[in-house]
Simulated assay, not measured.
Amino acid sequence: MKTKPENDTELRIKINRETARLPWAELERHFAQGSVIFVSVELDLVDVAVRVSHDDKESIVRWMAEGKIAKVNDEQTQAWTAAQASLWTAVVSPFVLVQPEKSKLH
Rank of each mutant, 00 (worst) to 15 (best):
Trp24Glu: 01
Trp24Phe: 14
Ala25Pro: 05
Glu26Trp: 14
Glu26Ile: 00
Glu26Lys: 10
Leu27Asn: 02
Leu27Arg: 02
Glu28Trp: 08
Glu28Asn: 03
Glu28Met: 05
Arg29Glu: 14
Arg29Lys: 13
His30Ile: 04
His30Pro: 01
His30Met: 13
His30Val: 00
Phe31Asp: 06
Phe31Ser: 05
Ala32Tyr: 10
Gln33Arg: 11
Gly34Gln: 05
Gly34Asp: 03
Gly34Ala: 04
Ser35Arg: 14
Ser35Lys: 12
Ser35Asn: 11
Val36Lys: 00
Ile37Tyr: 07
Ile37His: 05
Ile37Cys: 08
Phe38Lys: 08
Phe38Val: 02
Phe38His: 14
Phe38Gly: 04
Val39Asp: 02
Val39Tyr: 05
Ser40Asp: 09
Ser40His: 04
Val41Gln: 15
Glu42Gly: 04
Asp44Tyr: 04
Asp44Lys: 06
Val46Ser: 07
Asp47Gln: 12
Val48Tyr: 06
Ala49Glu: 07
Val50Pro: 04
Val50Gln: 02
Arg51Phe: 13
Val52Gln: 05
Ser53Met: 10
His54Cys: 12
Asp55Leu: 12
Asp55Gly: 12
Asp56Ala: 09
Asp56Phe: 07
Asp56Leu: 10
Lys57Trp: 15
Lys57Asp: 07
Glu58Ser: 11
Ser59Glu: 13
Ser59Cys: 10
Ser59Asp: 12
Ser59Ile: 07
Ile60Pro: 06
Val61Ala: 14
Arg62Gly: 05
Arg62Asn: 12
Trp63Tyr: 13
Met64Gln: 11
Ala65Asn: 11
Ala65Pro: 00
Glu66Asn: 10
Gly67Ser: 02
Lys68Ser: 07
Lys68Phe: 06
Lys68Ile: 03
Lys68His: 07
Ile69Arg: 00
Ala70Asp: 09
Ala70Ser: 10
Lys71Ile: 08
Lys71Trp: 15
Val72Trp: 01
Asn73Ala: 01
Asn73Trp: 10
Asp74Thr: 04
Asp74Pro: 04
Asp74Leu: 03
Asp74Asn: 07
Asp74Met: 05
Glu75Tyr: 14
Glu75His: 12
Gln76Trp: 00
Gln76Ser: 01
Thr77Tyr: 07
Gln78Gly: 09
Ala79Ile: 07
Trp80Ser: 00
Trp80Val: 00
Thr81Gly: 07
Thr81Lys: 15
Thr81Met: 13
Thr81Asn: 13
Thr81Trp: 14
Ala82Trp: 11
Ala82Arg: 15
Ala83Gly: 09
Ala83Cys: 11
Ala83Asn: 13
Gln84Arg: 15
Gln84Phe: 14
Gln84Ser: 15
Gln84Ala: 13
Gln84Asp: 14
Gln84Glu: 15
Ser86Glu: 13
Leu87Tyr: 04
